[in-house]
Write a protein that binds this DNA or RNA. Structure first.
Lengths: 205, 205
DNA sequence: GCATTTACAGAACGTTTGCAATGTAAATGT
DNA sequence: ACATTTACATTGCAAACGTTCTGTAAATGC
């Protein structure tokens, strides 16, 4: 006997529960979408390209997401989730404004600079369906995190909105600038420092 | 006789020279592309959609631009041209830094906020061909305008690049933020003022 | 164990895409 | 005036796209 073990000779494929299978396949597909959009853009992220990168058939995708819009929606939701999660767990007690701003910008850039935001961005830009709503949802998530970091009751709502929009613009713009021109990552430290500067100046009482 | 005039009764179509025809048709096609991308996005800007909006046949497009990439390249070039032109004619003598910054940001936003930049942006994002080169070209045009507005010999090259990238990011990010969420235009005045503030602070000797 | 449900594979289909090919009217040069 | 070139219209097509449909293996519940 080539395989001397008694019951299961060569467990080429381990037994997996339905829940495990579902979680793994969904994760593979969504990761494939993110990777594809990040590297070849939205337009060339076709159904065939997704199945190729994920290593699953279209049948699997259809089973878990329904159609292509279903995958895109799931990826959007996942991306927001990741962002909120990343900045929700940070401990802020005892940090002064400088430190808070630095922490905030750091964490936010981890998200905006990641393929996940690139992905979110292109989906929102091209996907006609959940256009307004999804972006609005992102702004709310952003606002929630922001108010936790910077309570700032001395500022008018109008000024806060302007500051938020400003910060989002810098981060989003920086991310797309890097995506368009293949520029070295260290060039981005300067602009990020400028953003911190601007935030500190406009947030302190 | 229903049309009593002597020679040409109803000149439904005036006689146009070849040069005029070419100029008009090219302009109509390029305007159609800009309008289409600005309103329905890159993906849904198909060949048929372009011909529909331009009111010309595909044969005409083919004749003047070759293929779809040809139109896109032409639109890119035209967009850069418009930007450079807009800021090149401004007289700067006798303006102090504040005024220069305000003028610069104003003019730059006229471009970044226009459908032409939205168009440039989406083409660069989705068009695989001239990706790096075209963006590099835009940066050069940007740099040329910038150095005319802000000679600033006291700053290190590194700092200047950071400031430039920062300004581009704010403007581009603001434009895309407006494109994604249909937000009121007046909300953008705040962030633009913040950009001016940041530029003045970092440019003065 | 066995029926049922769930997870996934793969081919087939109808539509849309960009583009080539061909034809025609208008303008130009001589 | 007429031949030639330029500007534009129309049709047809092959490839690619998203999706539907059918089939099969694996896991679950009884």
């Amino acid at each position: 006997m080539a395989t001397p073990s008694r019951r299961r000779a060569a467990p080429v494929r381990a037994r997996r529960s339905h829940a495990e299978r579902t979680a793994e396949t969904r994760a593979k597909v969504m990761a494939a979408v993110v990777a594809s959009i990040a590297s070849v853009g939205f337009q060339r992220t076709t159904a065939a390209e997704i199945t190729r990168r994920a290593g699953v058939s279209w049948g699997a995708v259809q089973h878990h997401f329904g159609d292509k819009d279903g995958i895109l929606d799931a990826v959007l939701a996942d991306s927001f989730e990741r962002f909120a999660q990343r900045l929700a767990g940070v401990e802020l007690d005892g940090l002064d404004l400088d430190a808070r701003v630095a922490t905030f910008v750091d964490g936010a850039w981890e998200h905006f600079g990641s393929p996940h935001y690139r992905c979110t961005f292109e989906i929102l830009l091209n996907h006609p369906g959940a256009e307004g709503d999804a972006w609005q949802g992102m702004l709310e998530a952003w606002n929630e995190v922001w108010t936790r970091f910077f309570p700032a009751p001395h500022l008018a709502r109008r000024e806060v909105v302007a500051l938020q929009l400003y910060a989002i613009s810098v981060l989003s713009g920086l991310a797309t600038a890097r995506a368009l021109g293949g520029r070295p990552a260290r060039l981005l430290d300067g602009p990020l420092a400028l953003l911190c500067e601007a935030l500190v100046q406009n947030l302190e009482a």
